[in-house]
């Protein structure tokens, strides 16, 4: 659709010390798209997410956001460029109130009026967070924590929301609610790059998908097409 993708990754390589995790990953996320990444444990999904939010410096390859190369960029640069990361395991500030957690998401923003409006928008999206806004984030259930983490990510007013393991350890009903919310967030114009173990759910949600295996993109295409790909069904869904 659009000519320049919001986020584009070319031949990315990364690892920890001598251990190479990503060998060759290229992908694109266009404005307003919902893209998912699937792959088995240890395929490099989380490492990719860490590169995409500046937590890990890639050893080769490039990350370009809105035509701007992000070489040597810090996590703060990535946030400013419009990337918000919802990390695996939520990583909330557990001894801070829910409200403070959400407001910390807007740490680098200075537009006070817009921040207040965004906070209201997130409370409308997750009424339970509004109800419990003065409670410590550590007292929330897993699903509610994930809501809070997504809310914190959205408070940065991102153009691309990175979500690492949306459904890990959550009750099916919570996953359903969160998936529904992501659709709404996406419909409001925020592109989403989702890493998910629950392949079925991920392919249902996404427009497009990438399959990562041993640090390389092995397949990509429209989510519907991949969902009916026999090889994918066999490898990730246990269907044959």
């Amino acid at each position: 659709m659009s000519t320049t993708p919001t986020l584009s990754v070319m031949s990315l390589q990364a690892g920890y010390g001598d251990v190479r995790v990503l060998w060759d990953v290229s992908l694109e996320v266009a404005a307003g798209e919902l893209v998912c990444i699937i792959g088995s444990n240890g395929a490099g999904k989380t490492t990719l997410m860490r590169c995409l939010s500046g937590l890990l410096q890639p050893s080769a390859g490039s990350i370009v956001i809105d035509g701007r190369p992000m070489a040597q960029a810090t996590p703060a640069d990535f946030v400013r460029a419009g990337i918000a990361h919802v990390p695996e395991g939520r990583r909330l500030f557990s001894a801070m109130s829910i409200r403070d957690n959400l407001l910390m998401g807007a740490y680098l923003r200075t537009d006070k009026g817009a921040i207040a409006a965004d906070l209201e928008r997130i409370y409308a999206m997750f009424p339970i967070l509004a109800e419990r806004q003065r409670q410590d984030a550590g007292t929330l259930s897993g699903g509610e924590q994930q809501m809070c983490a997504i809310g914190r990510g959205l408070m940065a007013a991102p153009r691309v929301l990175l979500i690492d393991e949306l459904s890990l350890g959550l009750a099916p009903r919570a996953v359903e609610l969160l998936s529904e919310t992501l659709r709404k967030v996406n419909a409001a114009g925020v592109a989403i790059l989702l890493v998910e173990q629950d392949v079925m759910n991920a392919l249902e949600l996404a427009n497009r998908a990438y399959v990562i295996d041993h640090g390389r993109v092995t397949k990509s295409g429209p989510a519907i097409g991949l969902a009916s790909d026999p090889a994918i069904c066999e490898a990730y869904m246990g269907l044959s």
Partner: peptide, 23 residues
């Protein structure tokens, strides 16, 4: 101050502090 809030975030979860853009 912003520095105070940032330090408290670091105390609670340093990687989350990085993620929201705290240096």
């Amino acid at each position: 101050s912003k520095l105070g809030f940032g330090l408290r975030c670091i105390q609670q979860n340093e990687s989350a502090a990085d993620i929201i853009g705290i240096n």
